[in-house]
Amino acid sequence: MRLFCFCLLLCFALPLQGQDQIYSQRKNTWQNFTYDMGNVFGGIGHSYSRPFHWNGNDWANFGYLSAGTLALFFVDDEFDHWVGGFEDDVPDLLVDYGNEYGSPENNYMITGGVYLVGLFTKNEKLRRTGVLLISSATAGGFLQQVSKRIIGRARPRSGDSSNVYDPFHIDRVRNYDSFPSGHAMLAFTNAYAIAKQFKNPWVKAGIYTVGLVPGFARIVDGYHWISDVAFSTVLSIFIVESIDKYLDSKYNEKYNNQAKAVSWNLSFGPGTMGVALRF
């Protein structure tokens, strides 16, 4: 943790220079690696500094996220009870996959593998994807680790209701570290970043679905409430979009030329509430 904090502070100290041309393809593998790692830490720092540069739309999106999460807080216990009614019918393979895929060690094996393939094949597009995956996962992972220690929300499997908290612990307290969901955040961060490689909406939808499985598995297994998973999923989108914009100025290869924006549409009706997230 201390090493990570040191590296994070180091990224803010790196000099920023404007250039007419982006020199993201270096002469040798070591130069490419050091350049990319600088962009990993630069992307993390960029994502953390964004709230200081938000405009009206950004604050509106944050308000929608907060309001949506708060709305789910009121149905967390009921949703958990409903899931318990079919928990035994969910295939063990699906739950095991969700729990394993979203774990930090497996996450970095995948993201690191993507990056190393791009590095050694000198594929800038794949290198950039790897940098996006690693920096987004690290930014989200560090944020959720700190948050869950501060918030100290009870997990469903603790036996307490969703409104029980044991906050402000430096060390994690077992079964009181529910919000937010690290598995959901890491898994959907990967899915969202990888889906950027494709334009076909059906391919994107398939990748998103795979990325949502760990969050669902954590709910079924009693590790998280629906609000934990929903908040973490949407926050992962914001983090990836922020770092992706930063990387536009660092790499010539741009796999996603469309405008990078996230918009919301809330709709209400008798006994219903709908949220549309467009990205």
Score class of each variant (00 low, 15 high):
5 C>P: 00
5 C>D: 13
9 L>C: 14
17 Q>D: 06
17 Q>T: 12
18 G>H: 13
19 Q>I: 04
20 D>A: 14
20 D>F: 12
21 Q>M: 09
22 I>H: 00
29 T>P: 03
29 T>Q: 10
32 N>K: 03
36 D>N: 02
41 F>A: 06
45 G>N: 06
46 H>I: 02
46 H>F: 15
47 S>F: 04
49 S>K: 10
50 R>D: 03
51 P>D: 07
53 H>E: 08
55 N>W: 06
57 N>P: 02
60 A>I: 05
61 N>M: 07
61 N>L: 10
69 T>Y: 08
71 A>Q: 11
72 L>S: 05
73 F>E: 04
80 D>Q: 13
82 W>V: 09
86 F>V: 10
95 V>Y: 02
99 N>L: 15
100 E>P: 01
100 E>R: 13
105 E>T: 11
109 M>A: 14
113 G>N: 11
116 L>N: 02
119 L>E: 02
121 T>H: 03
121 T>K: 05
122 K>N: 10
123 N>I: 00
123 N>G: 01
130 G>V: 00
131 V>R: 01
133 L>A: 02
137 A>R: 01
142 F>I: 08
143 L>W: 09
147 S>F: 12
150 I>G: 05
153 R>Q: 12
155 R>K: 13
159 G>W: 12
162 S>L: 07
165 Y>L: 12
166 D>W: 11
166 D>P: 02
169 H>M: 08
174 R>Y: 13
179 F>W: 14
182 G>D: 10
185 M>S: 12
189 T>I: 03
190 N>R: 14
191 A>V: 07
191 A>N: 06
194 I>A: 01
196 K>Q: 10
197 Q>F: 00
205 A>G: 13
210 V>K: 04
212 L>T: 11
213 V>W: 03
215 G>N: 09
218 R>N: 13
222 G>A: 11
222 G>L: 09
225 W>D: 08
227 S>Q: 08
228 D>R: 08
236 S>M: 05
247 L>H: 00
250 K>I: 00
251 Y>W: 00
258 Q>L: 10
259 A>K: 14
260 K>I: 15
262 V>Y: 05
263 S>V: 07
267 S>I: 07
273 M>N: 06
277 L>F: 14
